Structures are given as structure tokens and as C-alpha cells.
Amino acid sequence: MSLWGDEELAQSPVVANRTMNRARGLTGVNSYARELGLDPAGWLAERAGPQAWLDLCSGEGLALLAAAARLPQAVLTGVDLVGPVVPRPVPADVELVTASLADWAPGRRYDLITCVHGLHYLGDKLALLARAADWLTADGLLLAQFDPTALRGPAGTSLARPALAALRAAGFAYQPRRHLLTLRGRRNVSLPFTYLGADPGAGPNYTGQPAVASVYRPTRRQVD
């Protein structure tokens, strides 16, 4: 098994050609509401005061653009490795950032953080989840689709069970039917795994699309 670093991974055919989330809308058949089990704009609208939504691996940003029409006072941020490829008008309260999530960090906290099918293409999936937990507001919500079978040990063995156990100990909940991780409320998380690299040749995951396996060495259990 050949392991790739972040820069190599960003140029791999599996990551560069991903199409899982590029044209997904806010509601309807091919939508965030369908994948996550809730309408992000509707959920935010029920909260008092200004709302803020961070969408990781946002593709064309269509869901954020649709939400802007319903949430005129909200701060809406999308981050994607490629970014929008189709030029569209972007309202002032929508920020579409083209950056690698391996080292990007926001300058504020968010009421809602989503990642629809994006983790499948990232290298250090656990590090992003731990960092995103710190980007939430005190009563914010994180929703991310997650395939635990994509976590492997150095010899290729599955880390699905210990990884889910560590995530649950850190406060995450997992819905197997939706392959969905949720976390309520900001917290500091340290997961007991050392990232070694990524394998973009892992093959299809539960979506039927080629995905990236992430390789870790288990370490002493640490959850704050």
C-alpha cells in the first residue's frame, strides 16, 4: 500500500475528478436536506439572532446560494478544494473559499457545520472532524457523512470499530443507515490516532464511487 501526502492527494484523479457534491441543492431529490435528514436553512431559521453556516467540500455552493435567499442576515461560508467552476452571482453574505481543508481554518464559529460526502476524498479525516468540533458555537451542530471502513491501520486492517468508539467517547453520535456523524456543541477533541497518509487506490466505498482510505496508527486514548 503506497501512502500519499496532502499535496499529492489533491492532484490524484480520485480527488480531482470527484463529482459527489458539486451540484447538490438545498432541498429536493438531490439535496442536503435529503442526505442530512434536515433542511439546513430551516434549522438555522429557527435559531434566534444572526445565524452562521459553514459547508465543507461545498462544490458549486448551490445549497449556500439557495439558503441566502431564505436567510438574509446569515453568514454562509463554503470551502472546497476546487471551488465553483460555473460563474454565478454571489451575495455579499456568502463566501465561497477555494482552499485545502488540510490546513484551512475559519476566523469565527458557526451554528451549523456540514460536510456532505466530502470526507470520502480527504486524507486526515479524523483531524478535520476534531478541528471542526472547535469551530462550532456552544450549541451548534455538526453533520458529516462518514465511512468508518475507510480508516485503516498500517497493515491495512480496519480501524472502523476503534475509530467509532473514540468518536463516540468524544461526544459524536453515528447513524449507520445514513453514514452520518453528528456533534452538538463546541468542544476540544483529541482522537487517539496518528495519521500516516492516504491511499487513493482504495476503490469504491458505500456510495459506489472511488474514495480515499486514511491510514492511522492507534495511540494512547486521549479525549478532552
Rank of each mutant, 00 (worst) to 15 (best):
M1C: 10
S2L: 14
W4N: 11
G5Q: 14
E7L: 13
P13D: 05
V14I: 06
V15G: 09
R18P: 00
G25K: 01
G25I: 03
E35H: 09
L36C: 05
D39H: 04
P40K: 00
A45E: 01
A45D: 01
G49V: 12
A52F: 03
S58A: 12
S58G: 06
L62H: 13
A63G: 10
A63C: 00
A63P: 00
L64Q: 07
L65R: 02
A68T: 07
L71F: 04
A74E: 03
L76S: 03
T77S: 07
V79K: 06
L81F: 07
V86I: 12
R88Q: 15
P89M: 14
V90Y: 13
V90K: 13
V94L: 12
V94H: 13
V94Q: 12
V94R: 14
V97Y: 14
T98G: 11
L101A: 09
A102Y: 10
A102N: 11
A105R: 15
G107R: 14
R109Y: 12
I113E: 05
T114L: 09
G118H: 03
L119Y: 08
L119H: 02
L122V: 00
L129Y: 04
L129I: 04
A130F: 12
A130H: 09
R131V: 06
A132M: 07
L136P: 07
D139I: 04
Q145I: 06
A150R: 09
A150D: 03
A155C: 09
S158G: 11
S158V: 00
A160V: 03
P162S: 10
A163V: 06
A163Y: 09
L164S: 11
A173V: 01
A173C: 03
H179A: 04
L183T: 01
G185R: 04
V189R: 04
S190E: 14
A198S: 10
G201N: 08
P204Y: 10
P204Q: 02
N205G: 14
T207G: 01
T207D: 01
Q209P: 00
P210T: 01
A211Y: 01
V212N: 03
S214A: 12
T219S: 06
R221M: 14
R221F: 12
V223W: 14
D224W: 14
